[in-house]
Nucleic acid binder design. Sequence first.
DNA 1: TGCGACATACCAACTAGTCGGTATGTCTTT
DNA 2: AAAGACATACCGACTAGTTGGTATGTCGCA
Lengths: 216, 216
Amino acid sequence: MSLGMIPNRPFRPPAVTARDKLLEAAVKLIRTSGYAATSVDQLCAEAGVTKGAFFHHFTSKEALGVAAADYWSASTSAFFASAPFHDLPDPVDRALGYLDLRIALIGGPPEAFSCVAGTLVQEAFRSSAAIRVAAEASIMGNANALEADLDAAIVQCGVSGTTGASLARHVQAVIQGAFVVAKTQPEECAASLAREQLAHLRRYFAMLFGRENQEE
Amino acid sequence: MSLGMIPNRPFRPPAVTARDKLLEAAVKLIRTSGYAATSVDQLCAEAGVTKGAFFHHFTSKEALGVAAADYWSASTSAFFASAPFHDLPDPVDRALGYLDLRIALIGGPPEAFSCVAGTLVQEAFRSSAAIRVAAEASIMGNANALEADLDAAIVQCGVSGTTGASLARHVQAVIQGAFVVAKTQPEECAASLAREQLAHLRRYFAMLFGRENQEE
DNA sequence: TGCGACATACCAACTAGTCGGTATGTCTTT
DNA sequence: AAAGACATACCGACTAGTTGGTATGTCGCA
């Protein structure tokens, strides 16, 4: 991991069409200001396109919110799918490797590492069913990607009383909670508070799976 | 706990002044719609007061947001301070008792059990330093109330590698994360998903403090 | 009679969304 | 290969309604 790259969004293809520029702008502005507080005009200004282009590609602001959640989901899941921890032979190592990667990706101000889907759903779960469903797909999609490794770890270690799916959901919940509490902090303290939460989750997993909690 | 009471807000004194009615309205509307999406006009309509009353008591919408966070903080901390788990002799029992109470308070749709401070800070951490600080005070105030019991439990059980303060922050983070993931779900699934998160946290604490994870 | 607690009327700025228009294609027909 | 028909991508002025906030007035009570 090079230090210069943007945390949590390492591989951004340059946005070329107005649609892509608007989605990139949406990710940035939703992370910093939230969904409701971001106006269509601000989105267009940030993307460097006009309002005509906006409503050519999206039928409404809500439709952009849905598309932004999908866009976010696709880019993050592609990134984690290609991460090297998948090659580890032990499922416990893969589970802990995922957490270590997430910890490594946390840095800078909250808008650099927080989650678009979580921010969207917090604001729009009641006002927009479409956004709620898109955020659900993003967050639960992340969880699903962990399920198989966690199930394998549970079987291997003889853990009872939970499932891989439940633990995977818990990982996502702790990540979302880490982002919320990080946002309560002044900028320079936010990242370390978020990392602390994932470190506790790592310790929980290490205890569940009979590992010492050594940091690698 | 009677079933009829409003989850997480058991003891609401009847709002009598315009200011109190506005704060009650703010809690309700911020939970359901978020801060930015809630207009001053909506707040006044919900509270049954006029705009003149609003700006008589609050200098701006932002000031209401700060006051709502303080109001929320005061009412919740008073509730938890008076909860019976404080009388348990064992600090581990007190820590687990807090979690059991939080689990018991989760029910109904997300707007019935979610946290005003968490919702506020997620939206306004960048746009309003005053709201960010008020939300920090609310959430970290909750954490501080747990710190002594967790420190005592750590000493009693010989836990190393963390502190009561860190564990207390983690409790708050998991609670906030539980609320976020609950909001991704359709209404009838939200509460059980949130409870699942606190159950994992309870198991973490039970393992840390050398307890079986028996539910009481 | 003065002052706190409201109510009413109002405003400038901003909101999401519309609409007529243009530039640049890419097929299809002859 | 030329031309007509149609589609896509984008532009920017415009509108109807909403926004947070203000200015001024009223009313009851110490």
